[in-house]
Simulated scan of single mutants.
Amino acid sequence: MKADQVLDAKGLACPMPIVKTKKKMNDLEPGQVLEIQATDKGSTADLQAWAKSTGHDYLGTETEGDVLRHFLRKSGGNTETAATVIPEISLEDFKGKVEKGEHITILDVREVDEYEEKHIPGVIHIPLGEVEKRAGELNKEDEIYVICHSGRRSEMAAQTMAKQGFKKLINVVPGMRDWTGKTE
């Protein structure tokens, strides 16, 4: 696939590929294609969800060794959609709730390999790329704490769920990157 511009995001972890992509998309004209080169395995789901939430076209991903080459086409007009404000909780306050044994619903939206490496006991795991189609597995009336690696994917997941009628969503920031509590 031919790209108009290339963004090197190799070696960067979430949320940096999205942050750099957002900035680079501002330099493109509507209809132009950006190639994002990344090594973060979670970047595929991240970029798909980000493109959908901003109105850009996710064109696909090609793999060359360890490098994922993602292609996005810039849409025309205003690409930022009106987003619901998702409340946040600090990792410290969230950890307090978990350690007190409060009965809370926790949704981990990281990729399978990240989840399998370590996760909070009792969480529900739905990778970001599956949230839109699997959100129905959760109760819309529950207060749901959404967590990822840094807080960016969980924000995107919560936005997706809010559009489906979930009203009690809380984004855990920064996420599992800094989690020091019990894990499985």
Rank of each mutant, 00 (worst) to 15 (best):
R134L: 12
K97A: 09
V123S: 06
E132G: 10
G65I: 05
H70Y: 01
I86K: 05
E80H: 13
H103Q: 15
A45F: 00
P127M: 03
L59E: 01
G65A: 00
T21V: 04
L47H: 04
T63V: 14
V98K: 09
A83Q: 11
E62P: 03
E80G: 05
S43V: 10
G76F: 03
T81G: 14
Q32Y: 13
D40R: 06
I124Q: 11
V131I: 09
H119G: 12
N78D: 14
T21E: 00
I36Q: 05
P127C: 01
E64F: 04
R134A: 13
I124M: 06
E132T: 15
D40L: 05
R134Q: 14
G129F: 14
E99D: 14
I120L: 07
V109T: 11
D66N: 09
E62Q: 08
L72K: 07
K133E: 14
F94H: 08
V98H: 06
M16I: 02
G42L: 02
P17N: 09
I89L: 00
D113W: 13
E80T: 11
Y115R: 11
E88D: 13
E80M: 07
I104A: 07
T39H: 03
E62Y: 03
E130V: 02
H70C: 05
V109D: 09
Q37R: 15
Y58L: 02
I124C: 09
G60C: 09
A82E: 13
H125G: 14
G77N: 08
E64G: 04
V33Q: 02
E116I: 01
V123C: 05
S75M: 01
Y115F: 15
E92T: 15
T54V: 03
K97Q: 11
V67Y: 01
L91T: 11
K24W: 00
L91G: 12
Q48P: 08
G55F: 01
G42F: 10
V19Y: 01
E116A: 10
H103L: 04
T44R: 14
S43W: 03
K22C: 09
E80C: 00
M16A: 10
W50V: 03
D40A: 14
E88P: 11
N26F: 08
P15N: 09
K24S: 09
Y58M: 02
E88H: 15
D108C: 04
D113T: 15
E62C: 05
Q32W: 11
A82N: 15
S43K: 11
K52H: 12
D40C: 05
I86E: 10
I18A: 09
